[in-house]
């Protein structure tokens, strides 16, 4: 059974967005295949890997398990919006670059969105354990995590400098 499409209205990366969606489409499918925002990755597609992590009203969530119609009226931020918010390159992205925290890069967008949510929530330098806890839903199969944790800690310090 295919139900009729409906108009979804929400904010995506700061822009008012209206898009026709079928009720069984996930937020990830709409972002990637209807809005061409391919930064959020389709990994396991069932909640294990975290590659699809986006922020909904600032809270990091899995776009692969979110129905698109459920973000009606809400604010969605993807990795594309993270860079835009910082006018090009976000301090987290810069730190990932300097620490070689990305290898294949597939998990990076999801990790950036989970890390950004942590830094925005606490608004101070974070400890490696806090980063580990906040990124406990994001798998990386290349780096071994150490460089990712270093990068997030470093970015949190730089962001906290006056």
């Amino acid at each position: 059974m295919t139900a009729p499409v409906r108009l979804l209205q929400c904010t995506v990366n700061g822009r008012a967005t209206a898009v026709a969606v079928a009720p069984h489409r996930t937020l990830l499918e709409v972002l990637r295949y209807q809005l061409d925002l391919i930064g959020s990755k389709q990994g396991c597609d069932k909640g294990d890997c975290g590659a699809c992590t986006v922020q909904v009203d600032g809270v990091p969530k899995l776009a692969c398990l979110t129905l698109a119609v459920a973000v009606e009226g809400r604010e969605v931020t993807t990795v594309e919006g993270l860079g835009e918010r910082a006018g090009g390159c976000h301090p987290l992205q810069d730190a990932f670059d300097r620490h070689d925290a990305a290898q294949c890069g597939f998990c990076t967008p999801g990790i950036l969105m989970a890390a950004d949510a942590l830094l925005r929530r606490v608004q101070r330098p974070v400890t490696p354990d806090e980063v580990r806890a906040a990124l406990a839903g994001n798998l990386c199969r290349c780096t071994g995590y150490t460089k990712i944790i270093d990068a997030v800690v470093d970015a949190s310090r730089r962001l906290s400098q006056p």
């Binding site: 009720p23 597609d45 119609v69």
Partner: peptide
């Protein structure tokens, strides 16, 4: 890619 089957959604 794992597709959802078709369904209607209501938001009471």
């Amino acid at each position: 890619m794992l597709r959802l089957p078709g369904f209607e959604v209501a938001t009471p």
